[in-house]
Design a protein around this nucleic acid. Structure first.
Length: 595
DNA sequence: CCTGCCGGGCG
DNA sequence: CGCCCGGCAGG
């Protein structure tokens, strides 16, 4: 259940209806305290006129909640109780911000990086601060903390607070970094970017609310339900009862912008191509969510891939890198089988392929005349491999054992095989898309081909501006992936230079990627600029090849920002060139008045 | 335009 | 290496 379908997002079409069953929420018991539990069932009175949204949720919808504990709820059935959405606190429902906590309410907060529970002593509504009594450790006294209401949780975060904290200080960019790092342990990877992992300032700043969402998405509580809810909240009609949630979910606060700080601060690589440097429209947000999800998938793929090959001595270090990896591990245990389940009300038929389910939806529910997209009426259970980039990675046959040694023999940038691999991936991308456009193939590329991908499977659309698709279709039919025997063949194929150039013009120069993306297919948010290969050994090739048109447009981290200080030239003037620092004399970056 | 400086060439 | 310079990019 991992497909939070956003594929229609950009079209503005409505979303798939998705179950919210299983969501964690808190509900007010009759004793006046909130108790955590999960949504166990949803009951919506069948009154079509109320059903103005796609998700079959109306103001009258009742949510059965199964509580973790067994609070006293009057005469109702033990353990499961019904609430309306307004009575629930949780993602997509009410926010804790809206509630007044009674003294005695059990709450959870993060204190010194750990999650601790406490009991509300007083909730000062004026300043929205909560005095919380904390039970001291064994030999310590109890103490009291004052927390802002928004820092208070009504249920345990099921993750280690350390991770929670990490993630809160994280952003997608960083996530990409992490992924990138791991990616490097892959046998398909390149030693890319020192930069990739350095320089915090380069990270895209995320706002609080973005983090919130991110947190939510990454949480191991995140399931399809939550995701769906988020998504629904992002796109449901204004008439939807959900609109009440939009404030919390969409984060209408001014700080909500997802937009990257773009430009000077080097919007981040996030090699997955998902950082938009433009303003954050809601579609950007959706997109980011999607990317985030995909990141997870990709992590998963990495893990699977690696596990399958089981060839690297390099540790995957998946165990302690946060939710993403948790997810990956979890997924590792699963095998990838997909079942397509019809989500039409009261249907629930399952199918082995999406064609089947689509056909079922169309025939059994929608009818041939309907304009509705079948996509909205089914979900796939278990993992799903998306289409492009990931698949190409994961579905590659296992590497022969030799490669694992051989590709360690040289750094990837020196490794012709690696280069070829890139070529292959590019070619693959081209082959898959070529002919779809007039003379200009758009390549939806998983940046995995650069080994930098990590988050890969980004939906970065990279325009291949090197000519007609046919040109690429003609490429050698050689297997494109990395399992070609190592000492690689020669590069006598005439395509090679072309492709390399192409590659070089792509992800490595974020400038070009962004430039190109302006003319890329409209539905996708522009991919982020990528700082990826700035320190990569490929840089020189890159720049050599790109020295003219392909020059990055954004200040590359590899290139200093223009110094604002006085330089020798200014200070001493042309006449006293002798006094200049050598660097200045050489037209290099001034060493004397360096910035 | 001017200026900083990167990449690269030459010895 | 030291040195020089073409040329890009940003102002």
């Amino acid at each position: 259940m991992k497909k939070y379908f956003l594929n229609k997002m950009s079209t503005g079409k409505r979303l798939a209806k998705r179950s919210i069953i299983g969501m964690r929420v808190c509900a007010l018991a009759e004793d006046g305290f909130y108790y955590p539990g999960r949504i166990h069932a949803v009951k919506t009175p069948a009154s079509p006129k109320d059903n103005q949204n796609c998700i079959n949720l109306t103001p009258n919808t009742r949510y059965s909640v199964r509580f973790d504990s067994n609070p006293v709820f009057g005469s109702q059935r033990r353990g499961i109780y019904e609430f309306s959405c307004s009575e629930l606190i949780g993602d997509g429902f009410g926010s804790i911000i809206d509630v007044k906590l009674k003294p005695g309410q059990k709450v959870y907060i993060t204190h010194n990086g750990r999650e601790i529970s406490g009991v509300v002593i007083e909730h000062n509504v004026q300043v929205d601060e909560v005095n919380i009594q904390i039970q001291g450790a064994a030999n310590e006294a109890n103490f009291e903390l004052v927390k802002k209401l928004e820092e208070v949780r009504l249920s345990e975060s099921r993750r280690s607070p350390r991770l929670a904290d990490q993630e809160r200080s994280t952003d997608f960019a960083r996530l990409a970094d992490m992924a990138g790092d791991r990616r490097r342990t892959s046998s398909q990877s390149i030693d890319v970017p020192i930069q990739f992992t350095q320089n915090g300032s380069r990270k895209r700043r995320t706002s609080f609310s973005l983090d919130e969402r991110y947190y939510m998405l990454d949480s191991d509580e995140m399931d399809e339900c939550n995701a769906a809810l988020v998504l629904m909240s992002l796109s449901c009609s204004p008439n939807s009862p959900r609109q009440a949630f939009e404030g919390t979910l969409l984060g209408t606060s001014p700080g909500d912008s997802i937009q990257s700080s773009s430009g000077s601060s080097s919007p981040h690589l996030s090699d997955d191509g998902n950082v938009s440097s433009s303003s954050a429209s809601s579609s950007d947000k959706k997109y980011i969510i999607k990317q985030n999800h995909k990141l997870q998938i990709n992590q998963h793929n990495m893990s699977v891939d690696q596990a399958r090959r089981n060839q690297r001595t390099t540790s995957l270090s998946t165990s302690d890198e946060g939710i993403v990896m948790d997810y990956g591990e979890e997924m590792l245990r699963k095998r990838r089988t997909k079942i397509y389940k019809c989500t039409w009300k009261n249907c629930g038929s399952t199918f082995a392929t999406d064609e089947q389910v689509k056909s079922h939806v169309r025939n059994a529910h929608l009818g041939p005349k309907s304009n509705d997209d079948e996509d909205f009426y089914f979900t796939d259970l278990e993992d799903e491999t998306e289409t492009f980039g990931i698949d190409t990675m994961v579905s590659s046959p296992p590497l022969p054992p030799t490669l694992s040694h051989s590709d360690m023999a040289r750094p990837p940038h020196e490794d012709p095989e690696y280069q070829r691999q890139i070529v292959g991936n590019i070619r693959q991308g081209l082959l898959m898309t070529s002919g779809s456009n007039n003379g200009q193939a758009y390549m939806k590329t998983s940046l995995s081909f650069a080994g930098i991908n990590s988050v890969s499977n980004n939906n970065a659309w990279v325009q291949n501006n090197l000519g007609s698709p046919q040109k690429h279709v003609k490429l050698s039919p050689r297997p494109s992936t990395s399992y070609a025997p190592y000492p690689s063949t020669t590069y006598s194929t005439s395509n090679y230079p072309v492709l390399i150039q192409q590659y070089n013009s792509m992800p490595s120069s974020h400038g070009s990627i962004s430039k190109l993306s302006h003319s890329s297919p409209p539905q996708l948010p522009p991919p982020p600029q990528q700082n990826l290969l700035m320190h990569s050994p490929l840089k020189s090739i890159n720049q050599a090849n790109n020295s003219n048109k392909m020059r990055p447009q954004i200040v590359s981290p590899g290139r200093r920002t223009r110094g604002e200080n006085k330089k020798c030239r200014k200070v001493y003037g042309m006449d006293n060139r002798d006094s200049w620092c050598t660097q200045c004399k050489w037209k290099k970056a001034c060493s004397r008045f360096g910035d």
